[in-house]
Simulated assay, not measured.
Amino acid sequence: MSASDTPAHASAEDADTARAIREIAERLTAPGGNPVARARAWVEKVIPEAQRGPGWDRHWRELEAYAESAAIWAPEDGAAPHVDAFEDEDEDGDED
């Protein structure tokens, strides 16, 4: 089968597939972006798919969405938002 015998849509599909693979690879290797997505990529390199429980993907997607929503709250000057989980607690750990 020569190149002239291949359907025109095959090359378009191949290009789309290659583009999608490149986008995924860039997301996984990019230093910036969602910290949860970066953590997920690292964890999934270590934990085999057979050991991942039900809801694995859903939980990661929820955490990724939460991290992305924090970026929306960032100040306009580009500074990262300050989040201190213990900010409201006094010295003995109470929230009074």
Score class of each variant (00 low, 15 high):
residue 46 V to T: 08
residue 18 A to I: 03
residue 66 Y to E: 13
residue 40 R to C: 03
residue 40 R to P: 00
residue 74 A to Y: 08
residue 76 E to A: 13
residue 66 Y to N: 09
residue 49 E to C: 01
residue 25 A to P: 00
residue 96 D to R: 14
residue 34 N to W: 02
residue 11 S to K: 13
residue 34 N to T: 04
residue 16 D to F: 06
residue 51 Q to H: 11
residue 26 E to H: 09
residue 36 V to W: 02
residue 41 A to I: 01
residue 84 D to Q: 10
residue 15 A to G: 03
residue 27 R to N: 04
residue 1 M to F: 10
residue 7 P to N: 08
residue 25 A to D: 12
residue 96 D to I: 12
residue 8 A to M: 07
residue 25 A to Q: 13
residue 92 D to Y: 14
residue 10 A to E: 10
residue 52 R to L: 03
residue 12 A to D: 05
residue 32 G to N: 13
residue 16 D to M: 08
residue 23 E to V: 07
residue 88 D to Y: 13
residue 73 W to V: 11
residue 64 E to T: 04
residue 58 R to C: 02
residue 7 P to A: 10
residue 96 D to G: 14
residue 83 V to E: 02
residue 7 P to W: 03
residue 32 G to S: 15
residue 88 D to T: 14
residue 85 A to C: 06
residue 64 E to K: 02
residue 5 D to G: 04
residue 20 A to F: 01
residue 27 R to Q: 03
residue 29 T to W: 04
residue 43 V to N: 03
residue 88 D to F: 14
residue 23 E to R: 11
residue 88 D to L: 15
residue 33 G to N: 04
residue 42 W to Y: 12
residue 56 W to G: 00
residue 29 T to I: 02
residue 85 A to Y: 12
residue 93 G to Q: 13
residue 30 A to Q: 11
residue 28 L to T: 05
residue 73 W to K: 14
residue 20 A to W: 05
residue 87 E to Y: 13
residue 75 P to M: 04
residue 52 R to G: 00
residue 35 P to S: 11
residue 75 P to L: 05
residue 84 D to R: 09
residue 78 G to C: 09
residue 38 R to P: 01
